[in-house]
């Protein structure tokens, strides 16, 4: 049996200035736990997503950060896309809404595309004009020494109702041709994006930084920077993105 499940988080600012979580709804394999935050605001850890999504599953997670609230979300383990019994495609939708003067740090573990799996992941982020966002996504194509499954992801970010970033990636046997050639992946098996949106960038536009031969930090057309990184494996990719996180987001 395939699963349909939507987990929900709603963070709001309390009168005292702290962040409360009036909605924290686990669903199916997506179990949500409030965990200890390192700074101000609330932190939620997604646990137990280990063996999902399987082919045919339709999973979703929605987070809304109300005005003035601060929320950090991470996960206890990597998410592994696995084949279902009948070769059906799995869907995983992430919908994030961040209000004015609020912050969302969305830093889950990697998404691993196992051999034979077929996953379509869509992320839609809507930001208020003064919202801050730190968002990381890492795709690992195949477990260690394994051929990748089919993975397609789309990341659509709107700020104040206007498009800020729209990016679609497709890899693996079911993707259009040329995905592993010299224009797209060139044989790399770990792909990462780190997006930082900060209204402060409007005053001081960040500069391009070449992080390695296959990684670069670029300012977008709005007040945001995007790290686009390829690496031979998950560990090297994470090391690269972590270095940027330390520098840029404090």
């Amino acid at each position: 049996m395939s699963i349909r499940a939507t987990a929900r988080i709603h963070a709001v600012r309390t009168e005292g200035g702290a962040t409360a979580l009036p909605v924290l709804e686990s669903a199916g394999p997506l179990a949500l736990r409030r965990t200890r935050a390192s700074g101000a605001g609330a932190k939620v850890t997604v646990v137990g997503a280990m063996s999902a999504p399987l082919g045919g599953d339709r999973l979703a997670i929605e987070a809304e950060v109300g005005a003035g609230a601060r929320l950090a979300v991470d996960s206890a383990a990597a998410t592994i896309a696995l084949p279902g019994r009948d070769g059906e495609r799995a869907h995983y939708d992430v919908r994030l809404t961040v209000g004015d003067d609020s912050e969302l740090r969305w830093l889950p573990e990697q998404l691993i595309s196992a051999y034979g799996s077929d996953l379509r992941m869509r992320t839609r982020i809507d930001l208020a004009p003064t919202a801050r966002l730190v968002y990381r996504e890492e795709q690992i194509l195949g477990r260690y020494g394994e051929m990748p499954g089919t993975l397609s992801t789309r990341l659509t970010v709107h700020r104040d109702g206007r498009p800020l970033l729209d990016q679609e990636l497709g890899y693996g046997p079911g993707a259009p041709g040329g995905w592993d050639g010299g224009a797209v992946l060139g044989g790399h098996r770990a792909v990462g994006q780190l997006l930082i949106v900060d209204p402060a960038f409007e005053e001081k536009e960040p500069e391009v930084r070449i992080l390695s031969g296959t990684a670069v930090l670029t300012p977008l057309a709005g007040p945001a920077v995007l790290v686009t990184a390829l690496a031979p494996d998950a560990l090297l990719l994470r090391r690269l993105l972590d270095a940027v996180l330390r520098d840029e987001a404090g």
């Binding site: 040329g178 995905w179 592993d180 050639g181 010299g182 224009a183 060139g186």
Partner: peptide, 25 residues
């Protein structure tokens, strides 16, 4: 840059490069 990085060395690499570019950008 793909030629400089050794990602295009022959007609076969060029085909893979062009095919990837066509289906993406």
């Amino acid at each position: 840059p793909a030629v400089k990085a050794g990602r295009i060395r022959d007609a076969q690499d060029l085909a893979a490069f062009c095919r990837g570019r066509l289906h993406t950008a």
